[in-house]
Write a protein that binds this DNA or RNA. Sequence first.
DNA 1: TGTTGGCACTCGGAAGGTAAGAGTGCTAAT
DNA 2: ATTAGCACTCTTACCTTCCGAGTGCCAACA
Lengths: 350, 350
Amino acid sequence: MQLDNRKKEVLHAIVDDYVSTNEPVGSKSLIERHNFQVSSATLRNDMAELEHLGLIEKPHTSAGRIPSDKGYREYVNSLMTIDELSPREQLEIEKRIDTSVDEVTDLIKNATHTLSETTGFVSLAMSPRLKKSFLKQLKILMIEPGKALVVMVLSAGVVKDKVVRIPNFLSDEQIMKISGAVEKHLTGKPLDEITLVTVESAGKSTDVPEPLLKQVLYEAYAAIKQADELNIYLEGEHRMLSLPDFSSLGRARDLLGTLSDSGMVAGYVNEMENAAKEGGSDDSFMIRIGQEITLEGLDDCSFITATYNLTDSVSGNIGVIGPKRMLYSKVISQIDFVKKKLNKEMQRFT
Amino acid sequence: MQLDNRKKEVLHAIVDDYVSTNEPVGSKSLIERHNFQVSSATLRNDMAELEHLGLIEKPHTSAGRIPSDKGYREYVNSLMTIDELSPREQLEIEKRIDTSVDEVTDLIKNATHTLSETTGFVSLAMSPRLKKSFLKQLKILMIEPGKALVVMVLSAGVVKDKVVRIPNFLSDEQIMKISGAVEKHLTGKPLDEITLVTVESAGKSTDVPEPLLKQVLYEAYAAIKQADELNIYLEGEHRMLSLPDFSSLGRARDLLGTLSDSGMVAGYVNEMENAAKEGGSDDSFMIRIGQEITLEGLDDCSFITATYNLTDSVSGNIGVIGPKRMLYSKVISQIDFVKKKLNKEMQRFT
DNA sequence: TGTTGGCACTCGGAAGGTAAGAGTGCTAAT
DNA sequence: ATTAGCACTCTTACCTTCCGAGTGCCAACA
C-alpha cells in the first residue's frame, strides 16, 4: 500500500474522528478539527483516492466517509502508535485484579473481569493449553464403593480432578495399587503424549484381574484427557448493548446469540492461535477486524487477543471483542498490561 | 377478590389473548375470539370494573387493556389450569437432557440448558445447598512443599476440593497426621455445624507444632466453608433479545445488565427461597411477577422457580426468568417436568 | 501537476400535517 | 342488567416539504 504522507494522515484522521464521534466524517470537519495546511477540496480529492483504494467508504451519497475493514486494517498495521497506559490507568487495573487467589483459574477469571470493566467491551480468556505440561502426580482415591476420584497435579502448578465410576467390588487396596502403578509410569509425561495404550500398559504390573483393571485404567485415561480440555471465560456481553454500534436490536441479537455459544468462540480463538503460529507472525497480538472474523454476527466487531504464559510451554489467550469502531491503541495497551500482569502473577503458581 | 364468573372469564380471556398476540385487547376482539353470550358493551362495563380493581390497565386512552401485575397474579393464583406436557413434549425434554454425566453439577447444568431451550427464556439453577449435608471423608493431600489439596466427600454424593497454601517445611507425614485427625473428628458433621473452633480442636491430638498446625487447620476450615458456597448457573440471556417485550434497547440493556451480576441474582433466589420457607407456603413453585421482583430492570419479567432435591435435606432451585407476558401454565409444567427428571436422575449420585 | 474556489446535485432526516382505525365512556332505550 | 349508538381520543402510518451536510467536477491558478 503506497500512500503519500498526507493521505496517510487523512486516513488516520478519519479513523480517529469516526471512532470518537461515530459520525461519518466529511472534508470540512476534517479541516476544522485537524491542522491540514490544504483546502477541503484537496482533501476531497485525497478522500476520493482513499475510497478508490477501498480504505474508506460512504454510507450513502451525501454523507461523509467511514473507514472500511481494510481501512482499519491499514490503520492498525501501519498508522497507529501505541503508547503505554498512564500510571493512573495502570494503578486502576492493578487495583481491580484480585491476586489473592489460590488457583490459576481464579486469577484468569479475575483478569478477564477486569479487562471487561476497563475496556467496556466483552472480554474473554482461554484456559491454559495444558497439552504440553507434564504429569507430576496422579492419585486415584477411593471415595466409596463404585466411585473414585482421580487427582492430577500438573507441572504448570495446576491441579485437576474428576470423579469416575469404578467396579463396585474393587477394594481400597487394589485401587491404591493401580494408582501407584499408573503414577509411576506416567509421571513426567506431557499430557499430549499419554494415550489409552500408554495408560493401559502402565497398569500391567499390578495383579488386579484383567477386566476390572481395564475399566479403571480407561477411566483414568478419560480423566487425563479431560484435564487438557480447554475452557473459555467470557465476560461483559451485556456491555455491547450500551454501544451505539449495536443500537439495532437485530445486530445485538445476532452478536449475543453467537457469543452465547462459548464452545464456538473457543474454537475460533484456537483457530486464530494456530493460524498465527503457522504464519510465523511474532507479533504478540492477534487482531481480526470486521469481516475477517468468520463468526456470524461479528461483522461489526474486532477481535483482539494476546497470549499469556503460565510456563514456557503452557500458554493461553486473553483479549477483547469490541466494536470495530474502537480506540485500537488504547485497547491494545490495556490488553497488554493485563497480560503482563497476568504473566507476572502466574509465576507464583508454577 | 370477589369476582363474578363472567368477570373471571373476561380476565382469563384478556390474559390469554394478550399473551398470544402482544396487543392490548379490546372489547370487540374479545367477543370475536371467545364465545361470550353478551355484547361488547357489556364486556366494556366488566372491563371498566376490572380496571377499577387494578387487574387490568390501558396503555393509553384509546387502546385495549393489558393485564396489570395484579391481574397476572390473580390469573396465576386462581384462574389458570395446569395440564401435563404432552408425551411429545416430554420426550423432547428427556432427549435433550444428557444424563450420562459423572457429576451432579454437570447434570444440573444440562437441565438448565434444556430448560432454556424448551422455554425460550432465561433459565437458571442454584447449586445444591450443602449446609445440611455432612462430611463423609476429608483428606489433605500434599501436592508439593507449601501446597496441599483438601478433598471432601459429602453425604450428598458430592466431591469438593480446594488447593490451599501450607507452611513450606511441613512434611508429608505431618500433613497426613493432621488430615487423619481432622477427618476423624469431623466425619458425620453437617457442614453448617463446622466452625473454625471445631476444626481447631480437631487438630489438638496431633503433635505438630502449634503455629504451623494452626495455619493448616485454618486453610482446611476455609476449604470446608468454600464447599457450601452457592453457585448459580444462568443460561440463555440472549434469548430475551428475541422477545417483542424487550424490543426497546433500554429495557434489554437494563435486564441483561442485572442478569450479568450472577451473584446478585443468586442472592435474590435465596431470598425468595427463605421467604417461601417462612411463609410456610407448601406450594412447590415460587412465582414473582413484574414489580414484585426487587431486582432492577426485571419489571417486565416473571421469575418462576421450583425446588429440586438431591437428598431429603439437600436441595436447590431451578427455574426460569421470562417476560411476564408468558404462557404461565406451559412454562410451569415445563419447569415441573425438568425438576422431576432432575430429582430422578439425582438419585444415582447419592 | 497539484491545489483551490465555486457550484450544481444528492440524499437522509427532521418537521409537520392528514387520515385511518381501534377502542373507549357515556347515554338512553330495552 | 344489558344493549345499541355515538362522540371523542389517541396512536400509527404515511406523505410532503425542507434543510443542511457533503460530494464530484470544472475551470482557474501557482
